[in-house]
């Protein structure tokens, strides 16, 4: 690991000012991914601005009946929060299906969103990687890519975003609040992560020095659930996963939000599927037709075509279960 300075910030403005001291500074919260990437030599920030003590660690109901989640709330605390368990079960389930209890006790909301891909080439500095070193190439496209993207990838990068939590947040229409040198802004979670295009080194639209301060959920729009397929029964990244929110009235879909994990460079909100679902009969035939409409855009690589029927099965099953429960 390369040497680095460590500065602890007690106030948010101080954190921004400290970060401004170096263009390659990194904010340190839980560090479960950042410290690992520093050990691997993937990242070598000369300055860590420790935001672990900032007052961003609360979960609170908003005035409109939604939920405000501070950026440094630990994943385990969020998953166990009574309001999350009762009103946003998809979020609790997604969190609990990720990582291990030890990691969830430390990893934060903001850090979970900002974790990097687990593409083996990105994590191994002896290989080229356009995300790690722009312009060096993507060995994954013709190499080991069974776990990588089938949707939205580019000639430059086929990485997937590893978060489960972010997939649930995408289906919940979460918004992300940011604070940077130019002030505060807020954007939909679905606009926060990028597709790789020809700039795969940029995972998100975060500007230099900007800090994630809060994730805000609107009031729940329906019943919700998360389902994940992985190589082991526990403690493994998603091969494919689905987060769904469904509201049914008189046998028809009143609200549907669907997002896939493990398939793309960002949580994949399935707008084409939702278009088919809206107002349609809430039955398995509709659900299959909707999911097929979304996955028609899939462009599997040589060894990951299995993800398409896997994701289809997960999505149809989750929607069918939610319809039966409502």
């Amino acid at each position: 690991m390369k040497p680095f300075e460590h500065v602890r910030a007690e106030r948010t403005e101080r954190a921004l000012a400290a970060h401004a001291r170096h263009p390659r500074a990194q904010y340190l919260a839980g560090g479960t991914n950042l410290v690992d990437l520093m050990k691997l030599g993937v990242l070598d920030p000369p300055l860590l601005v420790d935001i672990g003590r900032l007052p961003l660690d609360t979960v609170a109901e908003t005035s409109d009946g939604g939920l405000g989640i501070g950026a440094t709330v630990r994943n385990s605390d969020l998953a166990a929060h009574p309001l999350v368990r009762s009103r946003y079960p998809v979020l609790s389930q997604a969190l609990l299906s990720g990582a291990s209890p030890q990691l969830r006790n430390v990893a934060t909301t903001g850090g979970n969103l900002l974790q990097r891909t687990r593409c083996p080439y990105f994590q191994d500095v002896s290989h080229p990687c356009n995300k790690r070193e722009p312009g060096t190439g993507c060995p994954a496209r013709d190499g080991v890519h069974r776990d990588l993207a089938v949707l939205g990838h580019s000639a430059h990068c086929v990485a997937t975003h590893p978060s489960d939590m972010a997939v649930a947040l995408a289906a919940l229409d979460a918004r992300v609040r940011l604070l940077g040198p130019d002030g505060a802004r807020e954007l939909p979670l679905t606009d926060f992560h990028r597709l790789p295009g020809d700039r795969p080194e940029r995972d998100t639209v975060l500007r230099p020095g900007e800090l994630v301060t809060e994730v805000v959920l609107p009031p729940p729009a329906g019943t919700s659930a998360y389902r994940k397929a992985r190589d082991r029964a526990s403690y493994a990244f998603a091969l494919a996963s689905v987060a769904a929110v469904l509201a049914v009235a008189d046998g028809r879909v009143r609200h549907a939000a669907l997002a896939f994990g493990g398939l793309a460079h960002r949580p994949w909100r399935a707008r084409a599927a939702e278009e088919v679902l809206r107002g349609a009969p809430a039955d398995e035939e509709t659900f299959a037709r909707a999911v097929d409409a979304e996955l028609a855009a899939a462009r599997p690589l040589r060894d990951n075509g299995f993800k398409v029927p896997l994701a289809r099965g997960l999505a149809v099953r989750v929607l069918t279960d939610l319809a039966a429960a409502s």
């Binding site: 460590h6 602890r8 340190l28 560090g31 479960t32 410290v35 690992d36 860590l48 420790d50 672990g52 385990s76 209890p101 030890q102 990691l103 006790n105 430390v106």
Partner: peptide, 13 residues
């Protein structure tokens, strides 16, 4: 009181 992976936690933090 919470279990953590001590290999990923910087002592300074």
């Amino acid at each position: 009181g919470r279990r953590v992976n001590s290999c990923l936690l910087l002592a300074v933090a």
